[in-house]
Design a binder for these strands. Structure first.
Length: 723
RNA sequence: AGGCGCGUAGCUCAGGGGGAGAGCGCUACCUUGACACGGUAGAAGUCAGCGGUUCAAAUCCGCUCGCGCCUACCA
């Protein structure tokens, strides 16, 4: 970079931390809104009466003033330009100059110029030829360039003394409250001082331009993409980067100073002679590089660069960088710059910007801030996997994630649920559990509908998980796994399996159930492994499995031959029937242990066939005494009624039916259906809707409307029959 | 000062032009041989407000209010 003129050494205004006694970059200065004061000072003209008034928030810097500036077009001061004023307390005479950087509307329209201690003043001084005068040392104390009374004083003590003395001498016009941003050191919080010193800089323009282009061309993609705006905005107004630090830790700058001449030798190897005069009295520059400069090289420097090692060739560029937006400029942008510069290619194809974990007050957690929640304490309370799962579940792209311990507790319960589900499977495996490899999945023809249903569902799950991971949707990944494992596998499939595993079940049923239970559990554990690595490994090892570790087991993908829409439809209807019976039981306060008779009138042949083949399953899930298919429900007598997709149902409750409760229950269902039906009807009566909406939407609404109406009629009749 | 994002159930948050969702919490009942860190059923929202686009808006657009963040050399 130095050979190409992209690194240079210059005497320039930098951000200086008097606490750390080093230069820092723009990014390391944290602006903090602070209630301060605006001091208006009066500088008398050297050649006659009167004075010019200037305003400042840092009165101590007046000791380093070498001029006063006004706007060239400001009528009030036009004839003052070129005159001289006497700097109070110091006695130096300094000129009044004109420069367009002055805001005519602010303060008095005249500004004191302290080139060595203010970036604007420095720039203006370079344009107008005012000399810089450094009045502080590296620790922020006034140096020997100020009158003796102030020498050695800390800058804030000097401020008090200067103000007091100006007041005394009549040069202080006013003090007003003033809210402004004060820059503080990111590391030690000391107020940063703009300070003239000699430092090394990166000429950032060409590097930033290439990096901006790479992102614009899509060679690096951002997730979520809106971060590109921030990236571009920063790149657009970037300043040269001060990379030298007066610190001890870091890469020492490979520059050697000659004791005899002013030449500086910059070299990869330690030079033996000065590149300027050829003598041998060389000392290496004591400064080190900004740690972020070294970090910018990380994607290739860690892989053996500048050698073209096999690692470098294979892993550069890498596929994705996962990181936080707080180091988007510090690190990500600079890795792109340096990667393009030295490798001729971006360092990564994708940047996934995570949300920021925040504390209970919504504050960013950081080591510097000291408000970090100890992850070990969270792990102690909820478990490692629960913590990790929570992070994944909360990771909506673009949103922060406030730490929610209640939610984490919920995911600990989920981990416990998985543990118990696996325990159930293990205790039902019999000799299958002692086999070294999992049993083969039976042929589809030998599988029961619930088997085909759960296999179809887990295959679909693998497909959604893959899509979610591809899109960096870790929240969708976690939620899909949670929903499937708890509410499909545990709530329904395990319950559906129990009859097949009960004593007295046929050996064929037992084998079939074992094989499917294991297959699905194995798949879901693998799918879950990236999000709950410890639990899944522990459980997987206890199941019959192939391979050393679940981490190396193939990641499941959608298996099209396992998809079975018919089985999914059938199970959905079974779930609805069972749900209706459970609702009747709960709403009418019927003893949960009591086995109920259920009369069903099927509306079509398909439903009739379904009922016939799943009589035992429905009876087991709904805790029925018997399931009876009837031609008509009219003769059922006192009974709780319900309608499902393809059938009407009645639970005869002679002698115990609470008619009022039953009426309320039915009425509530009717109300709900009516609201739905009205919404649909309104649309279907709207000619514009029928004409302009997409046909499939119209069809969908019409079907939903007809279904709602049909159910509504049947429910209304039922309610009427109650009198 | 510019830029970005967010306001959806009591809480924490998904969703995102056509049926308002999840977890936790809440209510009722249940110790049923995997699991009470559990089960079943249920209550609960003017999707911040106003206006616009559209056959149709929580969803798109504009404005307002509130909150958060980033960037910035007004002394």
């Amino acid at each position: 970079l130095h050979e190409e003129g992209l690194i240079y050494r210059d005497r320039f205004i930098v951000n200086w931390c008097p606490g750390c006694r080093t230069a820092i970059s723009d990014l390391e200065v944290i602006p903090q809104e602070t209630q301060g004061h605006l001091y208006t000072l009066s500088y008398p003209y050297a050649d006659g009466d009167g004075a010019i008034q200037v305003a400042t928030t840092r009165p101590e810097t007046m000791l380093g003033d070498t001029g006063v500036a006004v706007h060239p077009d400001d009528e009030r001061y036009r004839e003052k330009v070129g005159r001289r004023v006497i700097l109070p307390l110091v006695g130096r005479t300094i000129p009044i100059v004109a420069d367009p950087f002055v805001e005519r509307d602010f303060g008095t329209g005249a500004v004191k110029v302290t080139p060595a201690h203010d970036p604007n003043d420095f720039a203006a001084a370079q344009r107008t030829g005012l000399p810089p005068l450094v009045v502080m040392d590296e620790g922020g104390r006034m140096n020997d360039n100020v009158p003796e009374a102030y020498r050695g004083l800390d800058r804030f003590e000097a401020r008090r003394r200067v103000v007091a003395d100006l007041k005394e001498s009549g040069h202080l016009v006013s003090i007003t409250d003033h809210l402004h941003n004060v820059g503080r050191c990111q590391r030690c919080h000391t107020v940063v001082e703009p300070y003239l010193s000699t430092q090394w800089f990166v000429r950032i323009g060409p590097l930033a331009e290439a990096a901006t282009r790479a992102v614009a061309e899509g060679r690096v993609r951002f997730t979520p993409p809106h971060w590109i705006n921030s990236y571009n905005e920063w790149m657009g107004k970037i300043h040269d980067w001060c990379i030298s630090r007066q610190l001890w830790w870091g890469h020492q700058i490979p520059a050697w100073h000659c004791a005899s001449c002013a030449h500086i030798t910059v070299s990869r190897e330690t030079p033996t002679t000065c590149g300027g005069c050829g003598r041998r009295e060389l000392t290496q520059d004591p400064d080190v590089l900004d740690t972020w400069f070294s970090s910018a090289l990380w994607p290739f420097s860690t892989l053996g660069w500048p050698e073209r090692t096999p690692d470098l060739l294979r892993y550069y560029p890498t596929s994705a960088l996962v990181t936080g937006f707080d180091i988007l400029f510090f690190w990500v942008a600079r890795m792109i710059m340096m990667g393009l510069k030295f490798m001729g290619e971006v360092p990564f194809r994708q940047v996934y910007i995570t949300g920021m974990v925040r504390d209970a007050e919504g504050q960013k957690m950081s080591k510097t801030r000291g408000n970090v929640v100890d992850p070990l304490a969270l792990i102690e309370r909820h478990g490692t996997d629960a913590l990790r799962f929570t992070m994944a579940a909360m990771a909506t792209p673009g949103a922060d994630l406030p730490l929610d311990e209640d939610r984490m507790a919920g995911y600990r319960a989920f981990a416990n649920k998985i543990w118990n589900a696996t325990r159930f499977v293990l205790m039902n495996l019999g000799e299958t559990g002692r086999a070294s490899t999992p049993p083969a999945l039976p042929a589809p023809a030998e599988l029961a509908v619930p088997d085909r249903w759960i296999l179809s569902r887990v295959s679909r799950l693998a497909g959604s998980v893959e899509a979610a991971l591809e899109a960096f949707r870790f929240d969708e990944t976690a939620n899909a796994l949670y929903q499937f494992l708890w509410h499909e596998y545990c709530d329904w499939y395990l319950e559906m399996c129990k009859p097949s595993l009960a004593p007295g079940a046929s050996p064929a049923d037992v084998d079939r159930a074992r094989a499917v239970l294991l297959h699905v559990l194995d798949r879901v554990l693998r799918l879950l492994h990236p999000v709950m690595p410890f639990l899944t490994e522990e459980l997987w090892q206890r199941l019959p499995h192939r391979g050393e570790t679940i981490a190396q087991a193939p990641y499941p993908t959608l298996e099209a031959d396992l998809l079975d829409e018919r089985a999914e439809r059938e199970i959905a209807l079974i779930m609805e029937i069972v749900g209706r019976v459970r609702n009747i039981r709960a709403e009418l306060s019927i003893d949960p242990g009591r086995r109920l008779p259920l009369l069903v009138h099927a509306g079509d042949r398909e439903t009739r066939a379904l009922l016939a083949s799943h009589r035992d399953l429905i009876a087991a899930l709904a805790r029925l005494e018997r399931l009876e298919e009837v031609e008509s429900l009219g003769l059922a007598g006192p009974a709780a009624r319900a309608v499902a997709a393809g059938c009407d149902m009645a639970v005869p409750l002679a002698g115990v039916l609470d008619l009022d409760a039953e009426r309320r229950r039915l009425q509530r269902d009717i109300d709900k259906l009516s609201r739905e039906g009205e919404g649909h009807a309104r649309k279907l009566q709207n000619a514009d809707f029928l004409a302009k909406a997409r046909p499939e939407v119209v069809d969908k609404v019409r079907a939903a409307h007809d279904e709602a109406e049909a159910r509504l009629r049947r429910l209304a009749r039922t309610l009427e029959s109650l009198g």
